[in-house]
Design a protein around this nucleic acid. Structure first.
Lengths: 219, 219
DNA sequence: GCGAAATTGGAAAGTCAATTCCAATCCTTG
DNA sequence: CAAGGATTGGAATTGACTTTCCAATTTCGC
């Protein structure tokens, strides 16, 4: 039986208690890796935060790499689901602004610590862990798809011109979010994030205005 | 004499040979930390790459934190100087495009490994090393200033409207570069970087066109 | 050329992390 | 309730890394 080449020995829990421990470990690891980076998070750290023994971690995740992979999947999947209601309606300039501003408020709340959950992992792991990189690419693709499909709906509806490159716009917004969060993190101030994101959204708004103008001319 | 609170015992070399070793160490550390991250770079790693003994590293940089601080300063300062000729002329849309595209070519050349020298350090260290964060903020500020002053010149010249927020535009471009490089790194493909950067530059170009239109209307 | 300071090599201490292992205990299923 | 797998605790192993230390050795100012 051929495999993908990278076997991560993550075992599922078959009892209720086991499921809870596994979850506790995963959540603790995700928090710690977000706060201190993957390299800065030791297994003993996770043990303390999750209140488990070492064997439990190795039982469910095989090794640290397996745990890291699980955290990537967790951040990619679960965090995405949390925002699902918003993500499914990113089909107006206002919705985009609202969504981005919500992230800004979260940045303010944590005093701009941490940046983006996936972005931090991506920066740390992309070059040193090929399978992690793949997982992170998938995670980013999901965000990009969410933005892009909203823009595509705007285009179908006529809010954006038919020739508009919604992929490029979506990537640009995603990059502005990532880059903006990095600058916010470094400066401990969400202003750079807001500026970066607003410039891109302003640009999208300009394109919407242009489409409207074109329509009224055609008429 | 009051200090900044964080004393890094970095010693200057007073002999020619010493200066060369110090330099060799710094360059090796910068390379390694870029390739594998700060946490992923051990002192023995640096020893091997720079062909020096441990005592030489500790002699010149005090400890690993001091070495890291020196690398941050190195990347911020030296890399900036390398681009000085270009940076001083970012006062046209074409110049901006050319500058960003040059980075894209470099990304292609290294197969999108590494991302941005400063960005990677920033993501890894901002939350765990306050003094490193300050150094990185300074580094970013220099890049932002370079972009912003070019845009300001365009505004003075009338290429951009007098009411244009060049700070926001500069931040947006910097964020696009950072976010774009991150996406490129994760996807091992420079396309996302090019898309992100081009959208922002297109936006600036639109503003330039608007300013021109306004001028011809006024006349 | 001479003494002091700078530079260098290499060993060694001390710490801590990753992982393995085994013995216990718990739970499920028949 | 008994068997067997799931789960858990905690000790032990192994290895690497940071940092210190001291004894050469080289270089510089005079």
């Amino acid at each position: 039986m051929p495999t993908t080449g990278v076997e991560t020995r993550v075992k599922a829990a078959s009892t209720e208690g086991g499921r809870r421990t596994r979850d506790r470990i995963l959540r603790a690891a995700a928090e710690l890796m977000f706060e201190q980076g993957v390299a800065g998070t030791s297994i003993p750290d996770v043990q303390r935060r999750a209140q488990v023994s070492a064997s439990q971690i190795y039982h469910y995740f095989g090794d640290k790499k397996g745990l890291t992979a699980a955290v990537i999947e967790y951040q990619s999947t679960v965090k995405l689901e949390q925002q699902r209601p918003l993500l499914d309606h990113l089909d107006s300039v206002d919705a985009l602004r609202e969504w981005c501003e919500r992230a800004a408020v979260r940045l303010d709340a944590v005093h701009c610590a941490g940046g983006c959950e996936i972005g931090s992992l991506a920066s740390e792991l992309s070059d040193i862990d090929p399978s992690a990189r793949l997982g992170l690419a998938t995670g980013f693709a999901a965000w990009q798809a969410a933005i892009e499909s909203g823009l595509a709906r705007m285009r179908e509806r006529g809010d954006l011109g038919a020739d508009e490159d919604v992929t490029a716009l979506a990537v640009a917004l995603l990059a502005a979010i990532q880059g903006g969060m990095l600058l916010a993190q470094v400066n401990r101030d969400a202003t750079p994030y807001r500026r970066a994101v607003n410039v891109v959204i302003d640009h999208i708004a300009d394109r919407v205005a242009a489409a409207r103008a074109a329509r009224s001319t055609d008429r």
